[in-house]
């Protein structure tokens, strides 16, 4: 099972995660007697980068209309900031005593903290993106719910005008999301559900047309036509609900890579 939930998160965090693991091993092997180098300059570079990140993060929090992001992001920013302070403290301690064991521990703790904090930030953002996609999926569900009250061609035309751009957006965004996921099974489910939605949509519209023609001519079969239409609308609804469910799944487990 992949550790990182999306390919973007994986590409950003994996190299650093690997390096932190290697350094922890190195430190455990060379516990005594090796003086640490002067790390003031690289630590200061990290501090500056963190300060920029925190500034951008705070601006994002202030301008966002996503209440969950506004709630979750500050803690992640604080984690990164706190970890950066640990690195600064460790660097200062090592200047005084290059053999300091507690300084080395702070370095490792600070590095891990930055990794955890940036991971939390990326996850926070990723979840916000998923919520946007789900909002669009729910708009499609809202339209599907009114399919049964469409009884004239004019209404059907309007229905189609409203539904089509919404469906196209869902198709684009879910398709893009599927490509980002690292979990193969989730990807396959999204692909399958999306294919079903694309197949069912024109058939649903057709069934709605048939229903409208039948009731316009006052002929028999209106009930069966309505049942058929409702069945197709329900199938599409089920597929969209499955997409929403899978979008919210995650393979991310903080303890796994900790």
């Amino acid at each position: 099972m992949p550790v990182f939930h999306t390919k973007t998160i994986e590409s950003i965090l994996e190299p650093v995660a690997q390096q932190v693991s290697r350094l922890v091993i190195l430190h455990e092997e060379a516990e005594d007697g090796n003086p640490m180098p002067d790390l003031e300059r690289p630590v200061m570079a990290v501090s500056r980068a963190v300060a920029n990140l925190v500034k951008v993060g705070r601006e994002t929090i202030n301008s966002s209309d996503d209440p969950i992001l506004k709630q979750d992001m500050p803690a992640a920013l604080m984690r990164v900031e706190g970890a950066s302070k640990l690195l600064e403290e460790a660097s200062a301690m090592l200047k005084q005593d290059p053999l300091s064991g507690s300084a080395r521990k702070k370095l490792i703790e600070g590095s891990r903290g930055i990794l955890q904090g940036t991971s939390a930030l990326l996850l926070c953002f990723d979840e916000s993106e998923v919520r946007k996609i789900i909002r669009e999926c729910k708009r499609v569900l809202d339209y599907l719910a009114v399919a049964e009250v469409i009884e004239t061609m004019e209404d059907l035309v309007q229905f189609l005008k409203d539904l089509s751009p919404c469906l196209s957006k869902v198709s684009r965004e879910v398709g893009g999301r599927e490509k980002e996921l690292t979990h193969q099974v989730h990807r396959e489910i999204l692909i399958r559900c999306l294919d079903q939605v694309k197949t069912l949509a024109p058939i649903l519209i057709c069934s709605m047309k048939i229903f409208i023609h039948i009731i316009a001519q006052g002929g028999k079969g209106a009930e069966e036509a309505a049942e058929n239409r409702n069945y197709l609308a329900q199938r599409m609804t089920d597929e969209i609900n499955e997409i929403i469910r899978v979008l919210q799944l995650t393979t991310y487990d903080e303890e796994e890579w900790d």
Binding site: V56, G57, S128
Partner: peptide, 28 residues
């Protein structure tokens, strides 16, 4: 060990910049 730590801190620096880019990109 020196090279290891400097590499890690450089990598962390890059990591932070990439996260910042992600935020800026998605925010726009």
């Amino acid at each position: 060990l020196r090279v290891g730590w400097e590499q890690l801190l450089t990598s962390i620096n890059r990591n932070i910049n990439e996260v910042e880019n992600q935020i800026l990109t998605r925010d726009s």
